[in-house]
Lab assay of single mutants.
Amino acid sequence: GSMEQGFLPKGWEVRHAPNGRPFFIDHNTKTTTWEDPRLKIPA
């Protein structure tokens, strides 16, 4: 929902695949990933 959306880094969006699995869109680089960007520790 909109709650989890608010925690994503700037430029990211979460969508759900037809099977219900969430995936993440990085509008900054125009890419998608199954990995939650929030789980990655910034270098």
Rank of each mutant, 00 (worst) to 15 (best):
G1T: 12
S2N: 13
S2W: 14
S2A: 13
M3S: 11
M3V: 12
E4T: 13
E4G: 13
E4Y: 09
Q5P: 11
Q5S: 13
G6S: 11
G6M: 13
G6D: 09
F7M: 14
F7A: 15
F7K: 14
F7D: 15
F7T: 15
F7S: 15
L8N: 02
L8W: 04
L8C: 09
L8V: 02
P9C: 09
P9V: 03
P9W: 04
P9D: 05
P9L: 06
K10T: 10
K10F: 10
K10R: 09
K10Q: 13
G11F: 03
G11H: 03
G11W: 03
G11L: 00
G11Y: 03
W12L: 04
W12S: 02
E13S: 03
E13C: 04
E13W: 02
E13L: 01
V14W: 00
V14N: 01
R15V: 09
R15G: 08
R15L: 08
H16G: 04
H16S: 08
H16T: 14
H16K: 08
A17V: 04
A17T: 13
A17L: 12
P18K: 13
P18S: 11
P18T: 08
P18R: 10
N19S: 10
N19F: 00
G20T: 15
G20R: 01
G20A: 02
G20L: 02
G20H: 04
R21S: 07
R21A: 07
R21K: 11
R21E: 14
R21F: 08
R21I: 09
P22V: 13
P22T: 07
P22A: 09
P22D: 12
P22E: 14
P22M: 10
F23L: 11
F23P: 06
F24R: 00
F24V: 01
F24T: 01
I25G: 05
I25K: 04
I25F: 10
I25V: 11
D26H: 05
D26F: 04
H27L: 09
H27S: 06
H27W: 14
N28R: 05
N28I: 08
N28V: 07
T29G: 07
K30Q: 13
K30D: 10
T31F: 07
T31W: 05
T31K: 09
T32H: 07
T32F: 12
T32I: 15
T32G: 06
T32K: 11
T33L: 04
W34K: 03
W34N: 04
E35R: 09
E35C: 15
E35M: 09
E35I: 13
D36T: 00
D36W: 00
D36I: 00
P37E: 01
P37G: 02
L39P: 08
K40N: 11
K40M: 11
I41C: 15
I41N: 12
I41K: 11
P42V: 14
P42G: 11
P42E: 11
A43F: 10
A43E: 11
A43H: 11
A43N: 11
A43Y: 10
